[in-house]
Simulated assay, not measured.
Amino acid sequence: MTGSRIKITGQFKPCVHMGCFELEAFVELNQRSRWWQCPTCLKNYSLDNIIIDPS
């Protein structure tokens, strides 16, 4: 998303793919949105579905 290294990996709970994203950058870029779009599969989810990826 930003081209920098991932510090905190984020993912949406319902997503079944292996892709993750830089959580801080994602939240900063999308903080005014009501629905949040997964940058990997492009599905829309609510903010409640974002998790810190444990892997």
Rank of each mutant, 00 (worst) to 15 (best):
L47S: 09
Q37P: 01
K7W: 13
L23P: 02
T9F: 11
S46P: 02
T2A: 09
R5F: 08
T9E: 13
F26G: 05
F26V: 07
T2I: 11
C38K: 03
F26A: 02
K13R: 08
L29V: 06
S46K: 03
I8F: 08
I51A: 02
L29K: 00
F21S: 01
W35T: 06
W36F: 14
T9S: 12
E22Q: 05
D53E: 14
I50T: 13
G19M: 08
A25C: 06
T9H: 15
K7V: 15
K7A: 12
N44T: 15
Q37C: 15
Q37A: 15
G10Q: 06
C20W: 08
C15R: 02
L29A: 11
K7T: 08
M18N: 03
C15S: 08
Y45C: 00
N44D: 11
N49V: 06
G10N: 05
P39L: 14
H17V: 05
V27I: 15
P39S: 12
W35Y: 07
F21P: 01
F26W: 05
T2G: 09
R34N: 08
N44G: 02
G3D: 11
L42M: 07
C15G: 03
L42D: 07
P39I: 12
G19S: 02
M18A: 05
D48T: 05
I51Q: 07
F26R: 04
T9M: 11
V27W: 07
E28L: 11
Q11A: 13
W36D: 09
C41K: 03
F21R: 05
H17T: 04
I50W: 07
C41Y: 06
N30D: 10
R32H: 13
S33Q: 14
R5W: 07
E22I: 07
G19P: 00
I8C: 05
C38A: 02
T2C: 08
S46T: 13
D53I: 09
F21M: 07
G3E: 15
C41T: 01
V27M: 12
I52G: 00
F12K: 01
I51V: 15
E24F: 14
W35E: 14
C15K: 04
Y45H: 10
Q37K: 15
V27K: 02
P14Y: 01
N30W: 10
W35I: 11
A25I: 09
G3A: 14
A25S: 08
E24N: 13
R32K: 06
A25N: 00
E22K: 06
N49L: 12
Q37E: 15
R34G: 10
K43A: 01
N30K: 04
M18W: 09
V27R: 00
L29D: 10
N49H: 12
Q11T: 01
P39Q: 06
R34E: 15
Y45D: 04
C41V: 04
F21Q: 03
V27E: 12
E24W: 13
W35V: 09
Q31C: 10
F26D: 05
W36G: 07
E28I: 14
L23T: 03
Q31L: 13
M18D: 11
E28K: 00
L29T: 04
G3F: 14
N49R: 10
L42V: 00
G19R: 04
S33W: 12
P39V: 11
S46I: 09
P14N: 00
Q31A: 08
K7P: 02
K43P: 01
V16T: 15
T40V: 11
Y45G: 03
S4T: 09
C15N: 06
L47H: 06
R5V: 12
Q11G: 05
R5H: 02
I6F: 04
S33T: 00
